[in-house]
Amino acid sequence: MRLLLVRHGQTPANVEYLLDTAVPGPGLTELGARQAAALPEALADEDVEALYASTLVRTQYTAAPLAAARGLDVVVRDGLREISAGDLEALRGDAEHGELYLRTAFAWAAGEADLRMPGGESGAEFLARYDAVVAEVAASGAGTVVLVSHGAAIRTWAAARAHNVDVSFAAEHRLANTGVVVLEGSPTDGWKALSWAGAAVGPAGEGGPAGRPVEGVRG
């Protein structure tokens, strides 16, 4: 099956580079709403059969224009929410703690799933909840599915589960708001990343020009 992992549109927290992972979270900025509105055209060539979003409202707002354009319901699943920042949530705006957050998440993808985010979930818990939604999607029989999720969650899960995406690649390639990671495969056979924000992903996670990225900003 074809799996499209889409990061949500821009939020006020993104503008200020804040850790904001709690449910329900903020909505979209004006730019974020425009990014969401651009998704139907950006994914016009994709035969999307199902559409999922997390319990954080920013993903549901991002999915809404695509749902309306394709006549699909948005299936909301908690497993797709952002990696919980735990104790780091209250320390927002601190670059040191933001780096600790990402280092911990990428350590999970590198195999240290027993590590726990300070005051938050472990890698095993995060991967289990995300895997459960992907397994549900695969069992549905849909050929192409969009999962609207979150930057750290997408990068961490892709690095852990796609055989041609390693931690170095995921760490070096931030995913802009409404950026898309396209994968092909199944929970049984494994996953291969085909493109990352519009650039092809090679066997060793090497990028090259391909497709077109969805308009967005970093953060």
Rank of each mutant, 00 (worst) to 15 (best):
F169L: 10
L66R: 03
T59G: 09
G71K: 13
A200Y: 05
L115I: 09
L66I: 08
D189G: 15
G32E: 09
I83Y: 09
T178N: 07
A85H: 13
A170P: 02
L18P: 11
A158V: 15
L51P: 07
F169D: 04
A90R: 12
A13G: 10
A64M: 12
M117R: 00
V133Y: 01
R129P: 00
V75E: 05
D131W: 04
L72E: 00
N177C: 08
V201M: 14
Y17K: 13
V74T: 09
L127P: 07
A109P: 08
V145P: 07
I83M: 14
P118D: 12
G207Q: 13
A158G: 10
L4E: 01
L3H: 04
L91R: 15
P65S: 01
L66E: 05
D94Q: 12
Y17R: 14
A109F: 03
A210R: 13
A110F: 06
N177A: 05
A69D: 06
E96I: 10
E46D: 10
S195L: 10
D166K: 07
G93M: 12
G27R: 01
L88K: 10
R174I: 12
Y61P: 11
G179L: 08
L66G: 07
V201N: 09
V182S: 08
E206M: 05
G179S: 11
V181D: 00
R77E: 13
G205M: 00
A199K: 10
D87G: 14
T188G: 11
A199S: 15
R116F: 06
V214D: 00
G79K: 05
L3K: 02
E46F: 11
A199P: 05
A38Q: 08
T29Q: 03
L39M: 09
L56D: 14
V48H: 02
S195A: 14
F126D: 00
A124M: 07
R116E: 15
H8D: 07
D189M: 01
E136N: 06
L18Q: 10
R58N: 11
Y61G: 02
S186F: 06
S54F: 03
R218L: 14
P118C: 11
V181S: 06
W191A: 05
G119Q: 12
G185L: 11
T178Q: 04
R77Q: 08
A107W: 02
L147I: 00
G198V: 12
P24A: 07
